[in-house]
Design a protein around this nucleic acid. Sequence first.
DNA 1: TATGAATGAGGCTTCATTCAT
DNA 2: AATGAATGAAGCCTCATTCAT
Lengths: 236, 236, 236, 236
Amino acid sequence: MNDDMMLNEKAVAGGRSGWKQDPAGVQNNILAVAMTEFAANGLSGARIDEIAAKTHTSKRMIYYYFGDKERLYGRVLEEAYRQVRTGEEALELDHLPPVEALKRLAEFTFDHHSRHPDFIRLVMIENIHHGVYLEQSELIGLLNVGAIQKLEAICQRGRADGLFREDVSPLELHWHISASSFFNVSNRATFSRIFGSTLYTVDGQRSLRDHLVEMVVGLALKPERAKGRARGAARP
Amino acid sequence: MNDDMMLNEKAVAGGRSGWKQDPAGVQNNILAVAMTEFAANGLSGARIDEIAAKTHTSKRMIYYYFGDKERLYGRVLEEAYRQVRTGEEALELDHLPPVEALKRLAEFTFDHHSRHPDFIRLVMIENIHHGVYLEQSELIGLLNVGAIQKLEAICQRGRADGLFREDVSPLELHWHISASSFFNVSNRATFSRIFGSTLYTVDGQRSLRDHLVEMVVGLALKPERAKGRARGAARP
Amino acid sequence: MNDDMMLNEKAVAGGRSGWKQDPAGVQNNILAVAMTEFAANGLSGARIDEIAAKTHTSKRMIYYYFGDKERLYGRVLEEAYRQVRTGEEALELDHLPPVEALKRLAEFTFDHHSRHPDFIRLVMIENIHHGVYLEQSELIGLLNVGAIQKLEAICQRGRADGLFREDVSPLELHWHISASSFFNVSNRATFSRIFGSTLYTVDGQRSLRDHLVEMVVGLALKPERAKGRARGAARP
Amino acid sequence: MNDDMMLNEKAVAGGRSGWKQDPAGVQNNILAVAMTEFAANGLSGARIDEIAAKTHTSKRMIYYYFGDKERLYGRVLEEAYRQVRTGEEALELDHLPPVEALKRLAEFTFDHHSRHPDFIRLVMIENIHHGVYLEQSELIGLLNVGAIQKLEAICQRGRADGLFREDVSPLELHWHISASSFFNVSNRATFSRIFGSTLYTVDGQRSLRDHLVEMVVGLALKPERAKGRARGAARP
DNA sequence: TATGAATGAGGCTTCATTCAT
DNA sequence: AATGAATGAAGCCTCATTCAT
């Protein structure tokens, strides 16, 4: 998918040749395993022993490189944000007209979250912890400065064209897109157990995504521009 | 808010006279304390000793009445659903025209979730656990059968009036309303740390809620009915 | 089988009519259940809660009637000895010639033990506890005075007839008969898991019993009387 | 007696210098202590705290090396079988004529059991548990394949010489020898409390053993060979 | 005579972490 | 850079027993 992923694939799988004397490889291996474990079990639920066992190295190395469990978790959280944000960078929207760009961004976000459930779970876990580990990270602050820039550029163009409302901020649009995209992954277990899994079939997911796009575009556009839009021929 | 809350308040606060030989009181007291602890720390993060210490009874009674930590957590989850679902029942929408009723329901849901952060946290935690404890509960299944009925009634009336689209199901409307209402609470920590807290001010929250209502009504209505609607005079 | 058994059957099964106000019935019921539990799990392995749950009455009554776990165990041990010793009384050997009487007694003992595995298990458990509870019981002392009398009578007659050796005591004969009869039940689990269960089939058991009889008679008889005896036409 | 014993002696007593970083020593020390405790108190009666206290290491190490109480018990059982079976190997019977060899084996077994009361108690305890832990052990299966080979060899020679009966299997002979030898230790407490301890004096034990030998030889031999045999000049 | 509620002590086990080499 | 051995603290849970009615 991207080189981060490849790095982790390699780190998890391990090469035939020796792992010894490869500090970066050992650390990446630990991070990849720890990410899976923390995502699966949470901070208090994850076990250092379990992580170590699934690693190509020993428990001692975890402490050697990361200090303690909480700092390992912090590094995993950073790495997760880094992978996901990196995956977003490839998206190129400048050549599209604002409405199409917005649609494209919303769709991509919905799909991108769907493809990264472990990241979603880590963010859920971090929210359970009131975001204190995220706050301690300088890296995540840096990573996220660019997270909303695409949307700001789209809005700027949309407003310049007289199409977009002035009273709906890029931040709020981002919030609405994120809310649905995140909830779609984060609450799948409880929602589907209570209401069945029709919304989590291929058709159900497409419907949710299309309607999300429709709503977001409807929200961004000025009212007189909105009638009849965003329906029907939305996708080529 | 409702009598469950009052009951728990009493249970937490403790009565004037003897607590002995009051099984229901003891159980409610344990449940109330455990709900706070599980919501704050998760299933593995919560400590039975901590729960017991904040109780008016002893650790031993937790096991006497609830068996073990997981079953206590399961009962807490049930109780949380029960309280929230009970709090929804009071909402009376039948006298309102469909569009107003839908707006009212969306607003209420947004606010209701906002008022029950511990419930939201418990649902987050339960999703981390893949919903296995929710599945084991028969009570939650019963509680949720009515969770979507109000919306179905609204849609039925809206469609009968020729106002609502046929291709947007009540379940999907529920999903969209839930997604925003839930995310608003669940991801407040990470979102505000990354993007600032403007959306979590009073004005920011009102804006999010109003736009949610606008989007949901826009999604529900047929296109020809939608132009210019759901904006402006939405709230008295 | 005998009235003790019938009593216990009744005690375990419980009648349709009320158990209240029947102290003896309640106590017998407790004893019967406790015997099963102690035999199955040992003194430390048995659970008062478990015993109470399988009873027609409550845990409180166990303490009311028996004081504590150890005294209940003591009473169970007594009851077990009483039932088994009572079951032996019916055996009538005086009309048989000494050798036949001895054979009859050995056979009976082998079969009787086989029919009372719970008694065997309780004696095993008591031996694990170095017999301290048995020692505390006055009743068991009384019960066992008659346990060897039949054998003493047989030996007396056998010696008077000039058939039996003088240097093999009735007590030692009893010991040898008991050893095989007891071991047959007590070590069935380990023996059959190690060496297979051929000796625990119907044929295997008959063979063991017949050979036991043969050995015991061979031991009791004077050498010159023994040749060719105890083989072949042993049983009519 | 054998090096296992010596090893354990050393393990129990502790060496002069450092115990740290001696995994095998730590494990043997734990096993030796645990064997004593389990033999004395049974599986549920033994206390991990008590075992740990009598060890040169800590409770934590018990779990480090053995996992939990049941697996420790399983390992103790294996070790007990191993020690006893190892102690039997030294017995050399091939140079003796069959009858003498059989006598020698029976005597040895009687004495060997008598010298290993803890092994007997562990087997009793295991039978109380229906042999489930023995079944889980692969080692014990291996150890016991050779347990009966000496006897089979003797019988083969005895039959080849025309001395031994064909219808008494080596397995059954083993059973009879084991029954008496085992019962002699396992039921000493109850038997001596009920019938006095005359059979557990030095003379009593010799008598039991001699008579056991007599009976077993009598059982193995063909009738026409048996007259007057196995009495009198049996032992030099 | 009877019962459900309550309990203190102690049991087994697990955890993140550090030590010795 | 790396490892298996070791550990103290604390976690969850169970037990026989007693209390209040």
